Computed example of a mutant assay.
Amino acid sequence: MSTTGGPPPPRQKVVLAERRGARMVRTRVEVQQQTEVGDAMVRGLVRAQLGLALRVALFTVCLLGAVPVLFHLAPGLAAVTVLGIRLPWVLLGVVGYPILLGIAWVYLRLAERNEQDFTDLTDD
């Protein structure tokens, strides 16, 4: 309403969000407010992370657990020396650490990808 007596200002259309933006805001709000949908999305992320952790742990245990089994099944390998050190000590004491580092690196990348997929899902 104008007090000067002139014509009223033209109407303006107020848009709160574009269609894509409204969905992004809604999913983020659902996650933040812990609605049923948001809770299901977070549970899905936690389930994916847990599944990944269990698979990587199982792989690691099988890989490192296979070394003693190998030496039990082939006792002649236990007598082999590398640079004056017996092969079981070389495998478990020296080679094991870079293997664990590599497994940890792979796990980190896969866990970050799960989180990025979750973020992409909430940003859609």
Rank of each mutant, 00 (worst) to 15 (best):
M41P: 03
D39V: 15
Q32F: 14
R86Y: 09
Q49R: 13
T81I: 00
F71Y: 09
G93P: 01
A66R: 01
R55W: 09
G96I: 00
T60C: 03
V46D: 10
A40K: 14
A74S: 11
G51E: 08
T35M: 09
Q32K: 13
Q49I: 10
V80K: 03
L91C: 03
A79D: 15
R47G: 14
L77H: 00
C62P: 02
L64V: 07
V42D: 11
V94K: 00
P88E: 00
P88C: 02
V80E: 03
G96A: 15
T60R: 04
A40E: 14
A57W: 03
V69P: 00
F71W: 07
V31I: 14
Q34H: 11
V90P: 01
L54H: 06
L45C: 09
V42K: 15
V82H: 00
L52A: 01
P88K: 00
V46A: 13
P88F: 02
L54F: 08
V67W: 05
L45M: 13
G84Y: 01
A57C: 07
Y97S: 07
V67T: 00
A53N: 09
V80R: 08
M41D: 11
V90E: 02
R55H: 10
F71R: 03
V37D: 13
A74D: 11
H72D: 12
G51I: 01
V46R: 15
G38C: 05
H72E: 12
I85P: 01
L70A: 13
Q49M: 14
G38R: 07
A40Y: 06
A74N: 09
V37P: 01
R43G: 02
Q49A: 15
L45D: 11
V80A: 08
A66Y: 04
Q34T: 09
G76C: 04
W89I: 05
A74G: 04
L91D: 03
V37K: 12
D39W: 10
D39F: 08
H72L: 15
A48R: 15
V67H: 00
A74F: 14
A57I: 02
A53I: 04
A78C: 00
Y97A: 08
G96Y: 03
F71N: 03
L63E: 07
L64S: 04
H72A: 15
L54E: 07
D39S: 14
P75A: 02
W89P: 00
Y97D: 06
T81P: 02
T81E: 12
L63F: 09
R55F: 10
E30D: 15
L87S: 02
E36V: 10
V67A: 03
V80P: 00
M41K: 12
A40G: 13
A66F: 06
P88Q: 02
V80D: 00
L70Q: 04
G96V: 03
V56F: 05
A57Q: 05
V82A: 06
V90L: 07
I85A: 06
G76M: 11
Q33F: 10
P75N: 08
T81N: 05
E30G: 07
M41W: 15
E36T: 13
G96T: 06
T35N: 10
L92G: 01
G38Y: 05
V29T: 15
L54G: 04
L87D: 01
L70R: 01
M41E: 12
V56E: 06
F71S: 04
G93D: 02
Q34M: 12
A74H: 11
V94R: 05
G51M: 05
V61C: 04
I85C: 07
L87C: 04
